[in-house]
Amino acid sequence: MKSRLHWLLALAVWLLAAWLPPAEAALNVFATLPEWGALTEVLGGDNVKVYTATNALQDPHHVEAKPSLIARARGADLVVATGAELEIGWLPLVLQQAGNPKVQPGKPGYLEASPLVSMLERPARLDRADGDVHPGGNPHIQTDPRNIARVATALSARLAELDPPNAAAYQARYRSFEERWRNAIARWEREGAPLKGVAIIVQHKGFPYLIDWLGMKEVATLEPKPGIEPTTAHLSSVLESIRQRPVKMVLRAAYQSDRASQWIAERAKINAVVLPFTVGGSDSAKDLFGLFEDTIARLLKGAQ
């Protein structure tokens, strides 16, 4: 009997040891979306351990408060989220169940990106009859690299605030990233110059910041209302409308079903372009630089 108890105890210790995270001094960062995970990795380097809650092939509007997310939020020192109600269906629940007061909204351990940028498409009226509208504006802010730069400034400062011994390292990483990013933006803007004024259709209203940055023109949306599945009737009316006003391509994010885009692309004889949308959304979009390089390359190809 006693030896069995010993075995049980040994098993319990082993299980606990296997499950416990290795003791590290690194700052544990919980990023809701791949772009913020990638940005934290760039700015934090070895001083941070990043967990990204979702992947690029997941619809960021529909994420579940999974057990794995609760466990990770429990051990987080910093939560980086988009805000603007993008994560409203799961993050409040995860944070409430995690029992971690450090990362609750309003605390230094919680950083939202959307208040740091100028929001577009802030609805003039709030009514769910208009679909999945976000009162704070369109939350897909990561498609404009200048927004990434704005978030980087605040994120770097926040990392230094939470981990003062490594403040100098965060500062140095930020300076290096900021310079590379600034140069890259200039390069992408040069490369993307031909896209200015190009008329496009989008499947979901996921690209207003990209469109605004490159000066493209969004003439139609395949979803009849944000977040509502495209219907054949609506697609037909879009098809009719672009007969009068020719467009070059139809854009969709990597996580979206290709049915509606293909339908319109075949009938209107335009290019269906899949954009990575975030880090990991395509083979080339391995990091933030790759994300925009690939985005520009795909857009240029689609505009031909």
Binding site: G137, R146, A149, R150, T153, R182, D212, G215
Partner: peptide, 29 residues
């Protein structure tokens, strides 16, 4: 902030344009 984040290096003045457009007065929350 917008100017600081996207201020182009002096050697590339061609890239300044869209900043003003994207920071057009958004209604305050």
């Amino acid at each position: 902030e917008a100017r600081a984040a996207t201020a182009p290096p002096a050697t590339q003045p061609a890239t300044t344009t869209p900043v003003a457009a994207s920071t057009a007065p958004a209604p305050a929350p």
